[in-house]
Design a protein around this nucleic acid. Structure first.
Length: 421
RNA sequence: GCCGCGAUAGUUUAGUGGUUAGAAUCGGGGACUGUGGAUCCCCUGACCCGGGUUCGAUUCCCGGUCGCGGCCCCA
């Protein structure tokens, strides 16, 4: 007996069918906004991954030396490969560049609910514009995905790291220190954060500002006036105005959201708007989507270009759907089943199946079963139509077509099979 | 990396320090010879792996593996 490697899954037919259906909805949504699919390798050079996420993540990677001694990593996410592809191939294409991807990723993590070692991500990257309408569109695409999938119980939280960075900048905190502060914010440890701010010599006034801003969470109307008050006279005010502009545009798309200025996403490359989507029923791993405005092109050797994007955790998305309703619909793809009344008519039945297959997916009994058992098979598999090939009908060039839903049956002319319907 | 719970046919499970390890369901066949998930009958099929305790371990103990939930992490 061979077992699956830890944290991997087999997908049976029904599940695979659901996954494909959901995948189609994601693709259609991305394409409805004009994003084009791209593909990148399943493995990349290790340094691509560490360039984006640091040396420490090697712990969480599937990586190895290949036979040529190269350090290789199975991709742990898709933003870095897409950025590499952009820098390699697309820097000179008309802006904005609108890309989407769907693919499996690998992380060496302890598996738990909604977390696997091989998992699927789907997302978009909008490269080359830093306008509010671009940022708003990116959020709208994510929201549309959920609407089109029929997911109901989720929360979309939007924040803005630009505001936080500006406050720190005013307090003369250098960028790398900003990053460690944002990291600490992301962890949600208030004491550690205060300690860190002290150590870095952030002035009392700015510290208060920051902490107050981080607490702001709720409906736009309730939160924004407070934010304006806190940031009065600050350089961060400009960022706040920009944030408001994005939120304002989101109303055009009928996107429902919660303002949450405490989102830091803990990543050094985020520069402006950031958002996360949570499926409340999922438990510990409830974040199904994350994204924002970032600056990464330079990291991969390109000319600094503003970008914005997000990634969905596809597996979690399906889990959330499954918990909410019946999930995604599964139906039998086979339309027709052909069965002879006697084994000596097998060849005739096979010939008919060849003809019928031109009309739609068609199966034929492969077990040498008697009519009754074959009918039971078709019935069990919810195949809607059965062709019964009988000796007497065959002599007249006819075959019986039975509708398994209604139980009705009639004779049809074999010669006309592909013409009817 | 850490904590808790678990592991018996494909699936859901019962049970035991010495048993032919029981059932349901699924699968295959038959009763049914030209018509459906019914009924009845037959068949196939299981104690996660390694070590220890013991005359004897599927059962008790330890370790591993895998699963579930959580912590850390989450690009």
């Amino acid at each position: 007996m061979f077992k699956r490697p830890r944290g991997t899954r087999d997908f049976l037919a029904d599940e695979m069918s659901k996954r494909r259906t959901a995948e189609q909805i994601l693709r259609a949504t991305f394409e409805s906004f004009g994003y084009k699919e791209i593909g990148t390798p399943t493995f990349e050079n290790l340094d691509l991954v560490t360039a984006k996420s640091g040396e420490d993540i090697v712990e969480h990677l599937y990586c190895f030396k290949d036979k040529g001694g190269r350090d290789i990593a199975l991709r742990p996410e898709l933003t870095a490969p897409v950025m590499r592809l952009y820098v390699n191939e697309l820097q000179r294409t008309p802006k904005p560049v609108k890309l989407y991807y769907f693919g499996n990723c690998f992380r060496y993590e302890r598996p738990q609910s909604g977390r696997y070692r091989e998992f699927w991500q789907a997302g978009i990257e909008l490269i080359g514009t830093d306008r509010a309408e671009g940022e708003a569109e990116v959020i709208a695409v994510a929201f549309d995905v959920l609407k089109n999938l029929g997911l109901k119980d989720f929360e979309l939280h939007i924040g803005h790291i630009g505001i936080l960075r500006k406050i720190l900048e005013e307090s003369s905190v250098p960028e790398n220190e900003q990053n460690s502060i944002l990291n600490t914010i992301d962890k949600g440890d208030g004491e550690e954060l205060e300690g860190l701010l002290h150590r870095l010599g952030v002035m009392e006034e700015d510290r208060e500002k920051l902490l107050k801003i981080l607490e702001l969470r709720g409906q736009e109307k309730e939160v924004l006036p407070g934010a304006y008050r806190i940031l009065e006279g600050s350089k961060a005010l400009e960022e706040l105005k920009r944030f408001e502009m994005i939120l304002d545009l989101l109303k055009v798309f009928d996107v429902e959201f919660t303002v949450n200025l405490g989102i830091a996403r803990g990543l050094d490359y985020y520069t402006g708007m950031v958002f996360e989507i949570y499926a409340n029923r999922l438990g510990a791993e409830k974040q199904i989507c994350g994204g924002g405005t970032y600056s990464l092109v330079e990291t991969f050797g390109g000319e600094d270009t503003p970008s914005c994007g997000f990634a969905f955790g596809f597996d979690r998305l399906l889990l959330a759907l499954e918990l909410e309703k019946k999930g995604v619909q599964v139906e039998c793809k086979t339309r027709f089943f052909v069965v002879p009344t006697d084994q000596k008519l097998l060849k005739d039945a096979m010939k008919i199946s060849v003809i019928v297959r031109k009309i739609g997916p068609c199966e034929i009994d492969l077990m040498g079963r008697k009519l009754k058992k074959a009918m039971a098979y078709a019935s069990n598999h919810e195949i809607p139509f059965v062709f019964i090939v009988g000796e007497e009908e065959l002599r007249r060039g006819m075959v019986i077509l039975k509708n398994m839903g209604t139980g009705e049956q009639r004779e049809v002319e074999i010669a006309r099979l592909t013409m009817d319907r």
